[in-house]
Design a protein around this nucleic acid. Structure first.
Lengths: 184, 184
DNA sequence: ACTACTGTACCGTCTGGACGGTAATGTCAA
DNA sequence: TTGACATTACCGTCCAGACGGTACAGTAGT
């Protein structure tokens, strides 16, 4: 891995994610991923010895990115009592594409085999425990947790039905549930 | 279609859904679906002339079942002001498996080609409009809408992290948001 | 005779993966 | 400094099998 270029692994993972969005999560073939990542199929199989390993890495990377973005946002609100719930809310509502990890690869994983989501299950349970432990109002925190899930899933499916005004209304109310004042 | 047995179309659709859950949504082959539905591949292709038609029917049936269950629940609460939001809440939280449509087939659809979800997009937008038109408190209704989405998506992914107690706590709070008294 | 299939045979395409090769880049003793 | 070997990171080819779909002859119930 030379310093002036992104690692092949990253390029492959990104190519796979983009392909999933374009041709449908069930149709990411090794050939197509390799072509898109700018290397040969042999090269791909060198980095990921099987399709299974590739998809596992896809899930893992998404989880890492999500967790990193979440912890950054959480730190920004460390003064607030409901920092984690607030960070969750902001992660899913923020406009910056950099901070919002692309989850399309996850669809490829679940399409291939639902058991690929086991790491996600574990992560979510941990997240929920952390949320429960850090929230003054359990029910409200759980509502935020679910609502964020809802928004993320609809973004993932491309079935996002909320307009900007509705979007703003929900988030204002959710903030209110967390006893967080409106931002100026 | 004789009266004493379920139609072949229904059997095929059910078989496809079950297969999607078992082997992964990306791997429902016509051969496997036919075998599971107890007919030959020729018979399957007689009912659904292509895989595309089969999957379209999968999405359509799910939408029909969902809408039917929702309208039934809505009618049961026609005296309440937030009947639709409440019905949504009950549909996703009820224990009766009969009333909760299995959405696994949807995963097969999105895995194959995300544009299969167009009917779902339309339905959701219509549902949202109906919700907005019928709710006294818009923001709360939208929160319920999102939270229900969240719960449905996690059930779909099998990443449901909430325990029974947490589950109960959220739903109590959501009901409270809709100004609905606790059931006895 | 018509409907609703069944069963079998087949075709062209695509797939994951195995394999052998190779050029570049270390590593290390003499 | 050099030669010997190891590792990394790929390339290009091949293949058995699975896939969606077609074609068609046969058949049991109405």
């Amino acid at each position: 891995m030379s310093a002036d270029e992104i690692s092949s692994r990253e390029r492959i993972l990104t190519a796979a994610t983009e392909l999933a969005r374009q041709v449908g999560p069930a149709h990411i073939s090794l050939d197509a991923v390799a072509a898109r990542a700018g290397l040969s199929k042999g090269g791909l199989l060198y980095n990921f010895p099987s399709k299974k390993k590739l998809i596992e890495a896809l899930v893992e990377r998404h989880l890492d990115e999500f967790d990193k973005a979440l912890r950054t946002l959480e730190a920004e609100h460390s003064d607030c009592g409901n920092a984690l719930a607030l960070a969750l809310l902001e992660l899913v509502s923020c406009e910056a594409p950099e901070r919002k990890p692309d989850a399309t690869g996850i669809l490829a994983a679940i399409a291939e085999d639902p058991s690929f989501l086991d790491p996600i299950r574990r992560y979510r349970r941990g997240l929920l425990d952390r949320l429960i432990g850090s929230s003054s109002d359990l029910a409200s925190a759980l509502i935020v947790f679910l609502a964020v899930d809802g928004l993320r899933s609809t973004q993932l499916f491309g079935t996002d039905a909320l307009g900007p005004a509705e979007h703003a209304a929900v988030f204002a109310k959710l903030r209110q549930l967390l006893h967080v004042p409106e931002p100026a």
